[in-house]
């Protein structure tokens, strides 16, 4: 049904399961998924990579944790939870998960030694160039971007492959840009301004977005050569 055929709700159409890779998203690559400054102490930053919802937070010493945004117990988004010291506490049953993902405490059964099988799903994490990077099984080190100031992330309602293609068509003096494939229909452009002029970068990126989004979604890179 469509959203408005007399119904109260938009049904939403997010798939339960995503393939591990599609155009613009490869399991062996690193992707920038946040800026360092997005993940401030005590905050859980939420983003999506390749259709996978991620929760990003830091332990007290500042180490970045990137976890699947889903409690293994009853599926609640961990980004709804709270950072408590070096642990993340799920909002539903207050299960606590430590650095590395292991569940340490289950309040409903406080005397129980928590089985080692109860674990948040941990994703690879790296910090480089003012950005936080992740991927399914990324090889080597994240791309080395030139020194600069991290620009404002720009979501684009087009597939990553389409966005990457558009980026490649133009020269971007003073900018080093990368594409975060969010889901099959959308991407986020991230990067650094080597001259520190974030306002100019933002203007250029917004113009790029307008141009890309003016083309209909039928030019869907996700459909090609899948």
């Amino acid at each position: 049904m469509s959203a408005n055929d007399g119904g109260t709700f938009d049904a939403g159409a997010r798939p339960d399961f995503w393939p591990d890779f599609w155009p613009g998203f490869s399991p062996g690559d690193w992707y920038a998924i946040a800026a360092d400054h997005d993940v401030i102490p005590g905050h859980i930053y939420r983003t999506t990579l390749g259709g996978h919802d991620l929760a990003v937070w830091r332990t007290r010493d500042g180490t970045v944790q990137i976890w699947r945004d889903r409690c293994p117990h009853r599926g609640v988004r961990l980004s709804l939870g709270e950072v408590a010291g070096d642990e993340l506490r799920c909002q539903y049953h207050a299960w606590r998960f430590a650095r590395g993902g292991a569940c340490t405490y289950i309040p409903a059964q406080p005397a129980m030694k928590v089985p080692g099988t109860i674990h948040a799903e941990v994703w690879p994490a790296a910090e480089a160039g003012g950005l936080i990077w992740s991927g399914i099984d990324p090889q080597g080190a994240p791309p080395a971007l030139p020194a600069g100031t991290v620009v404002r992330a720009l979501p684009v309602a087009r597939p990553a492959a389409v966005v990457a293609e558009a980026l490649a068509e133009t020269d971007w003096p003073g900018l080093a840009l990368v594409v975060q494939p969010a889901d099959a229909q959308s991407a986020i452009v991230r990067g650094v301004a080597t001259d520190g002029d974030c306002l100019a970068a933002d203007r250029l990126l917004r113009a790029l977005r307008r141009r890309i989004e003016q083309n209909g979604p039928e030019q869907n890179g996700g459909e090609r050569g899948a």
């Binding site: 339960d16 117990h73 609640v76 988004r77």
Partner: peptide, 17 residues
């Protein structure tokens, strides 16, 4: 905020105690 939105009925989808 439960994911998947539909209730999984198969073993191993979620970990009960």
């Amino acid at each position: 905020n439960q994911r998947p939105a539909r209730l999984p009925l198969y073993d191993g989808a979620e970990l009960p105690i």
